[in-house]
Design a protein around this nucleic acid. Structure first.
Length: 404
DNA sequence: CCTCCACAGGAAGCGCAGGAGT
DNA sequence: ACTCCTGCGCTTCCTGTGGAGG
């Protein structure tokens, strides 16, 4: 027997050859230098911001498009180039990138801006008005500020925020503040106050989703750098881009698919990423999405979903409808009963049947369940409800979520 | 045919948290 | 600090609907 106890069990891990060169290139947070098929958008944003070079105030910009269409990547790239240029020519242009998912109130946005413009100072606990003045002061010294508000639809008091920022331009003489708003939500613009809308949307831009060919090109470029040579089969890339294009044209999930496929291959010590790994990865990614959807659901809706899942697992879904047998179909009423039973078991409150129906509609909108109106074979009028995904996975996920 | 069933989904209103106004 | 107001989540009540069953 070799002297096993002198060899650390992690030694093997080091020796194991990875199929990755740099997996960080596939991380969702990584922004590539090259942004293929977005030249038009890059040019458009830079020409909007161009007046700054001549000390003129540019139009505000509102950019929208589905997730993973390159909105953030393009804007930050242009902004960074602008800031670099400003430093080299001493133009006094400053930028602040604010992700409104985390900075979801006017105060927080202002705080983030203040921190960016005064990196040395700490503003924690100062009043909103003070911070606002501080930011304005910065601009008063003849500085031109560009504020990128990513996921701007997440800000609770957008109207107020945009109004304050645009009005600042009237108060200050030499400097300026330009807003770039980014949103996934196509309807967002319509819920704005008309004045906010007109000032924010001085210029509008749409980011179209990528098609399968474009995604293929993007994935090929990334795979070349992230994986070792010859690891990823071309057909695997084609498949991944086809899947992503069909679902949303989202570059981020396409890249995620590739990363997961690589991880699948690595785990089973395969040196190749083929169609098979991509298919497995697709399942994994789907699971992750389900899981994250479930975790954001209100607790009562989780309980309703749990009721549906556990009834499905008990094979209560097998129904005889006008002779033939239907599988996995549940009646609205029996689910409500099961839901109240489960809720009591967990010592939770239960909502009324009416509100439960609202939950059902919501779960359907999320695609977690499928419903059809009852027809012949069933007395009365009810909804036939089916689970959209694997019952056991959903049940496990929710039970974990509720205990936590 | 009428009645009952088993729901769907609209309307009104209630209690509460949190923001605006003073 | 205080009221006032408003939006939200929800309940209660109600009317509507389409097939089953007598």
């Amino acid at each position: 027997m070799p002297d096993e106890h002198t060899e650390n069990i992690f030694e093997k891990e080091l020796l194991k050859e990875s199929i990755f060169v740099d997996r960080n290139l596939l991380s969702p947070h990584f922004t590539p230098k090259e942004l293929p098929f977005r030249e038009k958008q890059i040019n458009e944003i830079s020409s909007i911001l161009a007046p700054l070079v001549h000390k003129k105030k540019p139009n505000n910009l509102f950019a929208y498009g589905k997730p993973g269409a390159g909105k953030t990547a393009v804007t930050t790239k242009v902004l960074n180039q602008l800031l670099e240029f400003s430093v080299s020519k001493n133009l006094g242009i400053f930028g602040s990138y604010v992700n409104c998912r985390t900075h979801n109130k006017k105060y927080r946005v202002m705080l983030k801006m203040a921190k960016d413009f005064y990196p040395e100072e700490n503003f924690l606990g100062f009043s909103a008005a003070f911070i606002y003045e501080k930011v304005l002061d910065f601009a008063r010294r003849g500085k031109d500020l560009v504020i990128v508000l990513d996921e701007i639809d997440k800000v609770k008091d957008v109207d107020d925020l945009v109004y304050s920022l645009t009005r600042a331009n009237d108060e200050i003489k030499s400097g300026s503040i330009t807003i770039i708003g980014i949103s996934n939500n196509l309807m967002f613009k319509e819920q704005l106050d008309p004045r906010t809308k007109s000032s924010l949307c001085e210029h509008e831009m749409v980011f179209p989703p990528y098609n399968a060919n474009e995604l293929k090109e993007i994935l090929t470029q990334r795979a070349q750098k992230a994986f070792k040579q010859g690891v990823v089969e071309e057909s695997a890339i084609s498949l991944a881009s086809a899947i992503a294009a069909q679902e949303s044209g989202d570059a981020r999930t396409a890249v995620m698919l590739l990363l997961r496929a690589g991880e699948v291959a690595e785990r089973k010590n395969s040196s190749k990423v083929t169609d098979e790994e991509v298919k497995k990865a697709k399942n994994k990614v789907e699971e992750e999405i389900i899981l994250s959807m479930i975790s954001t659901l209100p607790q009562q809706e989780q309980l309703v979903l749990l009721a549906i899942a556990s009834l499905s697992l008990q094979n209560k879904g097998i129904k005889k409808i006008t002779g033939h047998i239907e599988e996995g179909v549940l009646f609205s009423g029996e689910i409500y009963e099961e839901y109240t039973r489960i809720s009591k078991a967990y010592k939770e409150e239960t909502v009324s049947a009416r509100w439960y129906r609202e939950y059902i509609s919501e779960l359907e909108m999320y695609g977690l369940i499928l419903t059809t109106a009852s027809g012949k074979g069933i007395r009365g009028q009810t909804r036939l409800i089916k689970l959209g995904f694997d019952a056991k996975k959903i049940k496990d996920a929710i039970e974990k979520e509720i205990i936590a």
